[in-house]
Nucleic acid binder design. Structure first.
Lengths: 106, 106
DNA sequence: AATATATGCAACCATATGGTTGCATATATT
DNA sequence: AATATATGCAACCATATGGTTGCATATATT
């Protein structure tokens, strides 16, 4: 399941913060994204790499800087899996409820 | 961000498999869920505990067995965060596109 | 009462992870 | 040409994580 790797990549406060900034602010270079995270630039770079490896973001060289972009396909995959879990679970509850009602002694 | 802990809990193949089985099959006890995962029962129990700690599932003692239930509120939180990321990102792309068009020299 | 079943808890271990520092280098700016 | 900026890469380290085995115990079944 590729989804596991995606969730794992999102499953860290710093990495989630990076992804959040990417989506919500206009910051988009490796250098800028690495600021104010409470860790060193090199440390931040390693976290960005985890996101790259899970295809949550992509990198693109631009002169001396590196642009970071979100991969919405990956986000969609992550969302779809959760939606499926929710739907299947609801179906089961529904089936169970009907079963209980059909055997209800009232 | 509580979401990070949720994603972290989902970010492991075995744990994701457990959650998937919970939603898709009628298996619902700690013992049954622990089977066929390729690890020992005690190992599986530790993974279930990670899901419990992140509130992805809840436990409920029933006689000598322990029932596991999905917490849909937690799943919803995880889904909502991804949806928000996708929306914000789309808004940014849209704004950028309009900006480019307004400065287009054609 | 004796046995079987479902479970929990603790100690232990190898590897993964999240961080650091130090150094190198390509591209822009002056 | 000299300097500044943005970045990458590697070695290292402490702690977290994912697994194991061994043992204890509460509840059901016979």
């Amino acid at each position: 399941m590729r989804e596991a790797e995606i969730y794992k990549a999102l499953g860290d406060p710093i990495r989630l913060e990076i992804v959040h900034r990417l989506s919500a602010s206009s910051v988009s270079t490796v250098g800028e994204l690495s600021k104010n995270l409470g860790i060193s630039r090199q440390g931040a770079r390693k976290q960005i790499q985890v996101l790259v490896d899970a295809n949550v973001v992509h990198l693109e060289q631009q002169g001396r800087q590196t642009k970071v972009t979100l991969d919405t396909n990956t986000l969609q995959l992550a969302r779809a899996f959760i939606v499926k879990l929710e739907r299947k679970w609801d179906e089961r509850l529904e089936a169970l409820k009907e079963y209980v009602e059909s055997n209800d002694s009232r």
